[in-house]
């Protein structure tokens, strides 16, 4: 099956396009909201990341996969994924540099107060970034139907 046939599946619909255009910012905000709530209430990077990823998918449904792919460069996705991993690792390893254990957040307390919450937020954001980019990456991958099976490392630690 060639990619031509698949693009033929796309039907342009004003209703869907408008709806998506209106809803998308809210969904993205909601995603961030969920991510930021990971520290001390239900929520977190996993859920938020998936919601964020779904924004791109919505766009793809509305405007066509190829358009979405052009709009969101694959480099951005890869950078988001590895950036997330690196952020996470940096925060974790930072505590080791300060003489504690991996991810022992409260050691940052000496620089900034309430740092535990901030650090957890940051970690959640990093995870959110990873999850979102992986979800998007996989979505593109599935839509294209070829190339490498997994584009980015899954990271659930």
């Amino acid at each position: 099956m060639s990619s031509d046939e698949r693009t033929g599946l796309y039907v342009e619909s004003t209703i869907i396009m408008t709806t998506v255009r209106v809803v998308a910012p809210f969904v993205l905000t909601f995603a961030l909201f969920v991510m930021f709530h990971g520290a001390n209430s239900p929520g977190g990077g996993f859920q938020g990341g998936v919601i964020a990823g779904s924004v791109v998918m919505m766009l793809a449904f509305a405007y066509g996969i190829d358009a979405a792919r052009e709009w969101l460069d694959v480099r951005v996705v890869a950078a988001l994924a590895s950036g997330g991993v690196l952020t996470f690792a940096a925060i974790g390893l930072g505590t080791i540099v300060l003489g504690g254990n991996f991810l022992e957040y409260h050691l940052y307390e000496q620089f900034i107060s309430h740092v535990v919450a901030y650090a957890i937020e940051l970690v959640e954001l990093a995870i959110g970034g990873i999850v979102a980019s992986v979800a998007i990456g996989l979505f593109f991958l599935l839509a294209a139907g070829f190339g490498h099976a997994v584009d980015a490392p899954e990271d659930e630690s």
Binding site: R75, A78, A79, A81, S82, G83, V85, L86, A89, G92, L93, I96, N101, F102, A152, P153, D155, S157
Partner: peptide
């Protein structure tokens, strides 16, 4: 005493880099 965790984190960090690097 930090080595056990470093052993796990190091390859993950290392694994993220080729992804970015492969774009270049």
């Amino acid at each position: 005493e930090q080595i056990p965790v470093l052993l796990v984190v190091l390859p993950i960090v290392g694994g993220a880099i080729p992804l970015v690097a492969s774009l270049v």
